[in-house]
Design a binder for these strands. Structure first.
Lengths: 224, 224
DNA sequence: CAGTGGTCTAGACCACGTG
DNA sequence: ACGTGGTCTAGACCACTGC
């Protein structure tokens, strides 16, 4: 339960570089190692992650530097739940319904199989503005019975990433008429639909979802 | 110039797991370390990267396993140049032209600045089918003079990632009429436009590009 | 209890950029 | 010549799983 040293160092360095300006050098790994009373390998692990996340960059044989803060890496495909003012409005929730062939296929199911599904549709708002509509299709067997009615837990995609892989496909489309009003969009506006599949480590898909993203309220950005 | 041990181990393990089936356990880190004559930390580094890339997964206190091969991680935002049958058709190339305000802005330039720009537009085909149209806008000062006429080098985005950050924004739009024919699309088809900015470690953007992606030939997939 | 992955240490050598 | 990041070693302890 105790926090690993490299994480503490990571936080320590994070708080130290917040005071610094871009492109300023930080201490060398050996000095950090001495000051923070940890081995150089441990310090490096912390630094590696900060570089990976875009907060620092290295120049070989020269040093390690604070990255430009306006370009810290972001990936907005997954909503960060800690972000401000997220609100969810459940549009629909049901269990065990007639399932479309297209979704059967995404979940590697055939209509011969015995299965029970959960479907949830919700509208996501940020700061009161509609951002996207999400449709979830979840194979019930994979879910802890005690979470089935806790929507915030059940539908928190980040929670599954520890033990699963998330594969997302981005599809250009026109806003479906049934969701245009909820998203406050004219019909026929081009939007991006995300088709996501959550797959266990063992290779079994168990959640399929589609999200219809408001083109201006939900900016999709990927930094690498 | 010699290849690090952890990369050799990575390749070795990669070739070994190709023969294995999904969810099969591989040797423990200690055994690998012994067999491959490397320290456990070095073996772990190789394994870490393979896990990160989705080829393996671990279960704590149990072992390391081959991941489901159909779900190996992919990110198709960046074209892998080694992929099959990529063909580029240059549509336009010029230097020092009147630049749109919108692009000035993306590159943090003002029209007071002195600068010289390179613009290149090309059609990308895979297996003979049009996949996307790319428009590049490059600040000349940042480019090695000797590469200016080597389009394959100049426009290979992957090459810049060593020392720079790539920030991409995905925008739903309708296919621009001027590119509809080249992409073999009807006018008004919804497509995804990618707006990319390449930013040096020091925080200076120096390449801005837009790519117009064929919705069926260029599938955008992101796994995490 | 034996074996696993996760963390950590205190050294070492290398290639290379800058003063 | 010195300091830097990059790699590598040969150990160690821990918490946990499965037998």
């Amino acid at each position: 339960m105790k926090k690993p040293v490299y994480l503490k160092i990571k936080e320590q360095i994070m708080s130290e570089i917040e005071e610094k300006s871009s492109n300023q050098a930080i201490e060398s790994e050996r000095k950090l190692s001495e000051r923070l009373k940890a081995s150089r390998m441990t310090v490096r692990r912390a630094l590696n992650e900060l570089v990976e996340e875009g907060y620092l960059y290295r120049e070989q044989n020269v040093g390690t530097f604070v990255a430009d803060k306006s370009h810290w890496k972001k990936n907005t495909l997954l909503a960060k739940p800690e972000a401000d003012n997220i609100e969810y409005r459940l549009i629909n929730f049901d269990v065990k319904y007639a399932i479309r062939d297209e979704i059967l296929e995404k979940l590697n199911l055939s209509d011969q199989d015995y299965f029970s599904m959960i479907r949830a549709i919700r509208l996501v708002l940020v700061n009161g503005k509609p951002q996207k509509v999400e449709e979830f299709h979840i194979i019930r067997d994979f879910i802890d019975e005690k979470n089935i009615n806790k929507f915030d837990v059940l539908l928190d995609v980040n929670r599954y990433l520890e033990t699963s892989t998330l594969s997302q496909r981005l599809v250009p489309t026109l806003v479906p008429p049934k969701y245009a009003a909820a998203l406050k969009l004219r019909i026929n506006e081009p939007i991006i639909k995300i088709e996501g599949t959550i797959i266990s480590n063992k290779g079994e898909p168990y959640i399929y979802f589609e999200s219809y993203n408001h083109p201006r309220e939900k900016i999709i950005e990927i930094t690498e």
